[in-house]
């Protein structure tokens, strides 16, 4: 479980909120580089199910992760209406396949509540906390663990 550090408490963050698997999630806008419509990916041999493949992003090869599958939901059947959020984590660019982008939120870090105990292990791996906004519950995602950690685990993580 990730903790929001004390010093973040007073800072404002901007977040991009999106929908998948019937739920709402968000990520820090600082790590978002681009938002694109869905394009057909080139699959990678022996990749885990949540790695849809790679696409051409202005001349570099960008892996696209099916975020729903990664979070343990059913795998996405992408259509032209789906969206790829291009994020940057630790000097790597990764695309996240989601259903739709819903909002851009400005929140105070103090508004982030800890992830409820009932969340699954998988969920806890990725979630930094939850937000209550206008009656909606939006889960904050940490991108650090989204990509497979190393070449070995690419073949073994389910």
């Amino acid at each position: 479980m990730m903790h929001v550090s004390e010093k973040d408490m007073s800072a404002n963050s901007e977040l991009i909120a999106f929908r998948l698997g019937g739920q709402e999630f968000c990520v820090d806008i600082m790590s978002v580089r681009d938002i694109r419509g869905w394009t057909q990916t080139t699959p990678l041999p022996h990749s885990p199910e949540y790695v849809k493949g790679v696409i051409n992003l202005r001349g570099s090869v960008l892996p696209v992760i099916d975020l729903a599958a990664r979070l343990g939901f059913k795998a996405t059947e992408p259509t032209a209406r789906h969206v790829i959020i291009v994020t940057q984590v630790n000097n790597q660019s990764v695309g996240l396949l989601v259903e739709a982008v819903s909002d851009i939120l400005t929140i105070n870090a103090g508004a982030i509540q800890p992830t409820p105990d009932v969340a699954s292990d998988l969920a806890r791996l990725f979630m930094r906390g939850v937000l209550a906004i206008e009656g909606r519950m939006i889960s904050l995602i940490s991108l650090d663990c989204v990509l497979p950690k190393s070449a070995e685990s690419a073949g073994t993580v389910h």
């Binding site: 990678l44 570099s60 090869v61 990509l147 497979p148 190393s150």
Partner: peptide, 19 residues
């Protein structure tokens, strides 16, 4: 040749990628 390693990692059977 475009690197796969940059944004992803090594994949068995794949030397690199191209566009």
């Amino acid at each position: 040749i475009k690197s796969l390693e940059t944004n992803y990692g090594h994949v068995f059977g794949v030397a690199a990628a191209t566009i």
